[in-house]
Design a protein around this nucleic acid. Structure first.
Length: 104
DNA sequence: TCCAGCGCCCGTCAATAGTC
DNA sequence: GACTATTGACGGGCGCTGGA
């Protein structure tokens, strides 16, 4: 369990969602909340926190994008293999047919 | 028209792996 | 060991849909 110095966040973040939806800083990306000077903790702790959250937010977005892409690739592969399987089954059936006729 | 159920997307936290 | 990137888990909002 790694606790990074500036973490009182579990309690602080309880439910950010409602706040994020009404973030008045419309020029910022969704979910980014600017703190005014009175809210700045000593030593730029909250700035560090904001930076970390922003990076993680983007990392999560990218991670989901890659995962979706990966799943799509797998689905494509499944489709291709299913087609190949069908073709091979057909081919096998035809060969069996030929063999049977020759044997008769 | 209302509402429960569902799927999708998002932000955050925490754990873990990798790098220096 | 500190720092960073990645990713699974969780909780929440939103839009859609089918049934009452």
């Amino acid at each position: 369990m790694a606790v990074t110095g500036d973490e009182t966040e579990s309690a602080a973040t309880g439910d950010m969602s409602a706040f994020q939806l009404h973030n008045p800083n419309s020029s910022l990306p969704q979910g980014v909340v600017m703190l005014d000077d009175s809210q700045q903790a000593p030593g730029n702790v909250s700035q560090k926190r904001e930076l970390r959250l922003m990076k993680n937010r983007e990392a999560a977005r990218e991670c989901r994008r890659k995962k979706k892409e990966y799943v799509k690739c797998l689905e494509n592969r499944v489709a291709v293999l299913e087609n190949q399987n069908k073709t091979l089954i057909e081919e096998l059936r035809a060969l069996k047919d030929i063999y049977r006729h020759k044997a008769e």
